[in-house]
């Protein structure tokens, strides 16, 4: 490379990518491509909102690429899930506060409504009846999405994503003992929710 080119790169701040860098970026692209669908499903199960889920996955991917792309590739999976799960938890906390305010603000309005208006819509079938109409796959997915957040995270990371206990603990930001507890409760919950279909 000529000295002029080197000076030009310094002035413009751009540096030509080395082959090792190119290979690393291809690996990063492959990793994110492999994990993106499952990451989206996890976020959607937690939020039950496709737009929120996409926003969370986007934030997680950007933050992961900025902070952890230099880390060894064997650490990528737990680190990525840690970023994603942190964002999901932050979202859940914000929702909790928002719902508290919403409940408090609408308390007065609800008090004035007719009891008939608060009754369930007869046009909408009760939840049990709705469940009957769901396909088996949807029923299973719904059971997972209805788990409490920490149990859901433990189940999805450990059983679906295939992380080991230590990696799951790293991703969830808790001890390995807590992972085992959350997972055990998740499996118990799933069994009891689905026992009529899986005696």
């Amino acid at each position: 490379m000529s000295s002029f080119t080197a000076i030009n790169h310094w002035m413009t701040g751009s540096v030509p990518e080395a082959p090792a860098e190119q290979s690393r970026h291809r690996a990063l692209d492959a990793f994110l491509g492999d994990v993106e669908r499952r990451a989206y499903v996890m976020a959607e199960m937690a939020t039950r909102d496709p737009d929120e889920a996409l926003d969370l996955v986007q934030d997680a991917m950007f933050a992961f690429a900025r902070r952890y792309a230099d880390k060894p590739q064997v650490e990528w999976a737990p680190l990525f899930h840690r970023v994603l799960q942190n964002r999901i938890r932050d979202w859940a906390r914000r929702q909790k506060v928002r719902n508290r305010w919403r409940t408090w603000l609408h308390r007065g309005e609800d008090a004035g409504e007719e009891p008939l208006e608060q009754a369930p819509d007869p046009a909408v079938p009760p939840i049990e009846q709705q469940l009957d109409h769901l396909e088996a796959t949807e029923r299973l997915q719904q059971a997972v999405s209805e788990l409490p957040l920490r149990q859901q995270q433990a189940f999805l990371l450990r059983v679906w994503e295939g992380l080991n206990v230590a990696q799951t603990a790293q991703a969830m930001g808790c001890s390995q003992g807590s992972v085992k507890t959350h997972l055990s409760r998740a499996l118990g919950n799933l069994r009891s929710r689905l026992e009529e279909y899986h005696p």
């Binding site: 751009s14 990518e17 860098e21 996409l54 690429a65 900025r66």
Partner: peptide
């Protein structure tokens, strides 16, 4: 959208290291 986000994330990692 997932593909777009991924491409942008990889681009960010690339930019961060080279610039």
């Amino acid at each position: 959208r997932l593909r777009r986000v991924r491409a942008e994330a990889v681009q960010q990692a690339s930019t961060r290291r080279s610039r």
